[in-house]
Each structure stands twice: as C-alpha cells, then as structure tokens.
Design a protein around this nucleic acid. Sequence first.
RNA 1: GACCCCUUCGUCUAGCGGUCAGGACACAACCCUUUCACGGUUGAGACACGGGUUCGAUUCCCGUAGGGGUCGCCA
Length: 467
Amino acid sequence: MTVVTRFAPSPTGFLHIGGARTALFNWLYARHTGGKFLLRIEDTDRERSTQEAIGAIMESLAWLELDADEEPLFQSTRAERHAEVAREMLAAGKAYHCYCSPEELQAMRDAARAEGRPVRYDGTWRDRDPSEAPSDIKPVIRLKAPQEGETKIIDRVQGEVTVANAQLDDLILLRSDGTPTYMLAVVVDDHDMGITHVIRGDDHMTNAFRQTQIFEAMGWDVPVFAHVPLIHGPDGAKLSKRHGAVGAEAYRDMGFLPEAMRNYLLRLGWGHGDDEIIATDQAIAWFDLDGIGRSPSRFDMAKLTALNLHYMKQADDARLARLTAPLLASRLGRDLSERDMAVLTDAMPSMKERAKTLLELAEQTEFYFHARPVTPDEKAAKVLTPEARSAIGEMADELSAVAEWTPEAMEALVRGYAERAGLGLGKVAQPLRAALTGRTVSPPVFDVMAVFGREESLARLREAAVA
RNA sequence: GACCCCUUCGUCUAGCGGUCAGGACACAACCCUUUCACGGUUGAGACACGGGUUCGAUUCCCGUAGGGGUCGCCA
C-alpha cells in the first residue's frame, strides 16, 4: 500500500508554528515511505476563509520547501460530492433529517450544561416519523450514529483510544442550506483522495471518533491516525501572538533559514536518540511515526536560534549574501549593486559564524557599505586617541608596501609593528578596527581589510590617521 | 461539568525492570583569542505525588495532583 498523507489547513489565518510542524511531519512521512504528500485547503467556511490566508499558507510552505505532489484541492469545489454522500447515507438509513432549530439546540445544550449532563443532541428526530416534519423548516441531515458499544481508534501516537458511543451524539453531516459540515467533508475528501495516514494536531482527537463513525457508516476503510500533541508557548499555555502564534513567514522575516526551522520543528515532539542536528535528507531517512512523543512541547526561540547559527555556518556564501541583501538594503535605504553583492559574498566566511540570524548578518555587515569617511560610533571614537591615530598612520604606510594583500601578510606586518612598539596585538588591532569599521566589534581586522581591498582599506586608515 | 490525552534537568528530549538517569539549548566558570562570536573543557540542574506488582521500579498497574484538548448548522 502506498502511503498518502495530506496537510489540510483552513485558510482563516497564517500558517502557525503548529501547522508548520504538522505539514512537515506529513511531508516527511510521505517522503520517507516513498508515498505522496497532498494539500487540501479546507475553505468550506466562506465567511472566514480568505484569499490572503491561502496565499500566506502557500508562501510559508514554499519557504519551508514542503512541496506537495499534486495541485492543492479546494474543499469548497467538492460540495456537490459531499451532499451526494449525505444523501446516500440518508437512503441507506445511516442518516436522518433533523428539524430542530438552532435555538432549540442551544436551549438543549444550555439545559444539559445547567444540569451537569453531557452536552449532546438528544436525538429528537432520530426515530421520528418524517410525516411529523414541519413544512416551514429546512432540515439538516444527521448521522445515525451507533448508541451502544464503543468506537475505537488506533492511533500511532496515542495508542488505542476508546470512547463510549453514548458519549457521541448524532453529528450534522449536511447543513440546512445543503452545504456539508467539516466532519463530512473531511471524511469524504480523505476517502476520495486515497489518504492512508492522517497526521494532524491533537485537537482533532475527538473528531477522529466521529469521523470513524462516518467512515464506518459508508463502509470505507478508516485511515491510520497519528495525533500529534500541540505546541505550547514558553509559559506552557496555548501559543499566543506574543510567542509562536505568528505565521511561519514571520520566522523567515526574523532571519531564520528554512532548514534550521525544519530541524527545530522536527525535534519538537520527535526524537531519534541523541541526535540534534538532523539535515533534511537524514530526517527523511529516519522519520517515523513511532518517534513522535505523547506530551505537548513548548516553543523555544533560543534553541531555534542555536540551530540557525549551525545552519548559517554551513550555508553557501552566495546564498547567504542573496538572502541578506534585501535586509541590508532596507537598513541602508538603497539597493545593492553587483559590486556590493560581491563584497557581501566575500564578507560571509568571516561573518556567518558570528551571526545567529540573517537579520544579525545584515546588521553586522552594514559597515562595509557605509561610504567614507567613516563615522565612528561612541565606543570606536574613544579608541581613536591621538596616539592611536598616529600609529594607524604608521601602519598604513607599512601596509601600503605589503606585496600580497592577504590577511596572513597583513597580520605578520602588524604583529611586527606591535612588537617593535612593545604592544600586544590587541592594542593595535582595536584602533585599526575602529578606523576601518567605525565600530569596536567586527570580524578579525585583517579579514575586514581583505574584503575592503587594498585601496579602500588604506584610504580608511589614512583618513583616520589625519582626522 | 462530561469525555479523552499528557507528566524525566528551566526548555526539547534519550531511556522501553537492574544506568554514576545520557544528549542538546539556555545558564555559570575556565581555556582559546586582535574585538565580538565560534570552538573546547568543566559545573550546576530532572524521573509530580501516593499506593501497589516485583528480589528490584523512571520504566508495569491503580489513584491523587497539575497541565492540555474536545464538547457549534466553525474548521
């Protein structure tokens, strides 16, 4: 049997972190088994579904590089098929018309709650003669769910979970306006799409029982379920906007790499021994449902950040430059030229291991693109004492004579200068740094000079020397 | 309230009857060092509680407590 998984978001908002992980797990499982990963947009709530949300979700999935094997299916296009299944169940005696008004139902729920009884539909119309039906009310179609016994689901994460059928009521399949409910639509679509494995959030656990009843009423195979525990915020409560409940694209904007995000999300609720750094191809080879934990986990930005540093160090320089460019452009208030891009790429080897995000990369490489004369910040200005300036001038003269403009040659020269002056390297490097970058923090000064090139470096040093 | 699920360092987790309870992030100290980082070494830090079962429970069972989820003509 070929595995077919699906990710089925409802487009009422962005793709939040939990959804992103659900998508990742479905994608990984399909890739691991050589199966298919499908996408279904559950847009049956026309009030709340928006085009913007669809766009945001697709964009986030694209950013995370979770590619579906087929074009996304829009659930709203399948309403006729859903209604047809409802009518089929009606004809087979598996469903019935219910004429209760929303007000009556609400009263029923309120009463039940007040008396401390389970809140359920009481089956008023379950066995009532259709001739008693009021002519002025459009009925809904309800599932004639079993009232005795129990419904069991086999869940690859939660194990065997059983609930007494008495706990479940006759859910609505088709609304009075003839449109399908979520419960019906999901089952019909999962069946028609050939979904074999339903991997989704824990919040759908109770839905699994009701959906199983529909599958069984239709005589369809029930897919394998895997209900993944939810992700909570750092405080253990539900994810709120303050922490993880922002869209996945927000993490892109914060300067995280998609591969870091995937690795982080993978390790949140899934483990493979002591392994922490798990590249995507390795994840595909290793991922299995048995590795999913049963307890909810908390979102931890620090760990994501640490992972991001790791992947940044490994990332290709040109790619990092490309990703950093727009962030840098917005800091500088101008676009980067081809020449700028070359400088940025050259700057990456010494830069990428000291920045945790692309945002930091942009911030820390910014000085390369500030035109001369250098404007030192407060700390750098303090370093540039008159003595330091004259030393910078002397070093500039010596440096101008260096044959090869390499970090090694420059370092040898400056070390020699420091020794003759009876100073540590730090004493002379800081003024150089301040003169070159206008800051007191930067990559090693000789790397910086190599990136700037001979001409630009000497110009900066000489300006600092005479200032 | 009813039903269902969960509970190992602060966080993510390993563990699947006998372990000095391991790793990672974060934290602290030290080393490295031209600044900041990276890196390295070391340290502190956990089996929610109470009963069983067993020669022996973190591990199995039952309670308690705490947390979470679900109870719509929303998805």
